[in-house]
Design a protein around this nucleic acid. Structure first.
Lengths: 340, 340
DNA sequence: CTGAAAGCGCTTACAG
DNA sequence: CTGAAAGCGCTTACAG
């Protein structure tokens, strides 16, 4: 494996000047520069990243922390972030963290051992020591898709509660009164979306009914089906449902279809996230669009600023979400069924 | 940032013995061991990966090369691979490569600079120098989801052509004679699936008709819709379609629906890959299942073996695929329309 | 069993 | 403008 010494030898200069040329420092003899460039070209030499990282105490990479069970929205988001990061010259390393203390600990070990320049978190981690570490070592960190109250950091997110409120209110405006909720207990986004659901109900003078809410284990299409099945078993009539993610909504629609219940004629349904596939389902899904591209772009702009600037001013950015009305919701009319 | 020297000082031993303890070498005084373990615990010390990588000339990570436009199947696959890699103690670093020479070159620079222990390729790269580099530096590499003829390496894949043949033959068995193809020109898998389509037709004594095949730019749901739109413009009647990926098929189904054409009553459709969502579409999609889990597992088993063993025996593994019949295909009956 | 020393491949003051 | 030297944080022979 060719090293900087080889280049120095071939070009008949010192390693210092090779290093200078590689790093575009000004003031090198043009003739020598030509010689080393030639040597680099002929050998295909590329500096060893590990060596450079060690001495510079910078890695030019940022870590992206995400749940190993990432859903489609998160996937679209991290693709986007990776792309922007690359434009800024950063590499991205993904830390997929498994549920529970062990997963978090693995992640923590990696941040300590790999020393990335910064961190973007798409998932909450509980481990207290983690935040202490970031703080005491002044490691730039931006949180995206949620906020963390106990920890001041810059975060980029949508007003989950408000957005969910808008989704449910859409259903209420259409005349629905018995609105089910499919949600989960993990991750703050679900809790907040549930709160938005509840608020919208109360705001409209509707009673919150535990029988109309079902909790599922994950936010996948499969869970959406399970949630709907559970709901239908309960014999509590409903004419609309708010699913806390699009995937859940898609699974729920599938299950309804299997029971001969039509969307939106019999039951209206609204999701959350506006993932790609949601404009292609049959029927197309009404949902809340998160400004994915903007969130990604802002996240990397912020992490870059945090990495390169002296004063770490933390900001909390709430981005606007938008209700996208498509085909899965309609007015409650006379022949709407009970969904049972 | 605490280093090995700090631990040595705190525990009052040499850095050598700290290193020995960290790396679980046998034969260290138990009392000293206790002291350094205590020091490590109290300081939260974790070895610097960059330093270790440099001196050991190993990184304990494998690179996963994938197209930056990865589709859902590829996403499921790389998630799976990452997971298995982790079980073997490897880290995964993703190289998303953009289409074209620049993208490939970036990727090549990264493999040269980051020196991963091995490489798993989910995407073909053309650059000749790349393979020369791998070869001359004896860098283990496994290719998954395709084969590369000019380059002997271990590869894991499905018999694309055969599988496509089976998909189209299913349509033929159902009585279809005018079968469209939605495919692309990029990536070998599409070419091979097209070949399977053609073979199946000829095998059944059916004529291959260019008017029935449409080429799309990507393998996304969006492109599926575009392909179908194009097909319908041509006024060439068809009663069935084979889409080279599930996403294409899903997009095509959506487009048909918009034109009031029912699947499978009017037109039958079969996809390829069996991505998760395909069991939840309306109607559920008939498709070819690739043994995703097995492919992932085998890929990492092979790369691990290549990394750890002396003799690099290359193997070419063809895994079985399976036709999954669901709701999007049915027999051609009297009232089937022409699809125009 | 254990420490001092050399070395991995770089970058960066420091002289000249 | 440029080279010799020190040093980054590790591991691994090599003595003892």
């Amino acid at each position: 494996m060719v090293s900087i010494k080889d280049i120095a030898r071939i070009a008949d200069v010192s390693v210092s000047t090779v290093s200078r040329i590689i790093n575009n420092k000004k003031g090198v003899n043009l003739e020598k520069q030509a010689r080393v460039l030639q040597a680099i070209k002929s050998t295909g030499y590329v500096p060893n990243k590990a060596a450079r990282d060690m001495v510079m105490k910078r890695t030019f990479t940022v870590a992206l922390i995400i749940p190993d069970t990432f859903n489609i929205f998160q996937r679209q988001l991290f693709s986007n972030i990776e792309h922007h990061l690359q434009k800024f010259g950063y590499r991205t390393v993904f830390y997929f963290v498994a549920m529970g203390p062990d997963g978090e600990d693995d992640c923590f070990q990696r941040v300590k051992s790999e020393r990335t320049d910064g961190i973007i978190m798409l998932q909450e981690i509980q481990l207290h020591a983690f935040y202490e570490y970031l703080e005491s070592n002044k490691i730039p960190c931006v949180i995206t898709t949620f906020e963390k109250d106990e920890w001041t950091s810059t975060s980029i997110h949508v007003s989950e509660e408000e957005a969910a409120h808008a989704a449910v209110n859409h259903l209420i405006q259409l005349g629905h009164r018995r609105i089910s909720l499919i949600c989960g207990k993990r991750y703050s986004f679900s809790l907040e979306r549930k709160r938005g659901y509840r608020n919208a109900l109360e705001y409209a003078g509707l009673k919150y009914d535990e029988n109309l809410v079902v909790y599922v284990d994950s936010y996948s299409v499969l869970s959406g089906g399970e949630g709907m099945r559970e709901l239908m078993k309960r014999n509590t009539p409903f004419t609309a449902v708010f699913a806390v993610t699009d995937e859940l909504a898609i699974g729920a629609m599938r299950e309804l279809k299997d029971h001969g219940i039509s969307v939106p004629q019999d039951v209206s349904i609204v999701g959350f996230d506006d993932i790609e596939i949601s404009s292609f389902t049959i029927p197309r899904l009404t949902t809340i669009r998160q400004p994915l591209g903007e969130m990604a772009q802002t996240s990397v702009a912020m992490i870059h600023s945090l990495i390169t600037s002296e004063n770490h001013l933390n900001v909390n950015i709430a981005m606007p979400s938008q209700l996208i009305i498509r085909e899965s919701t309609s007015t409650l009319n006379g022949n709407a069924q009970d969904g049972t």
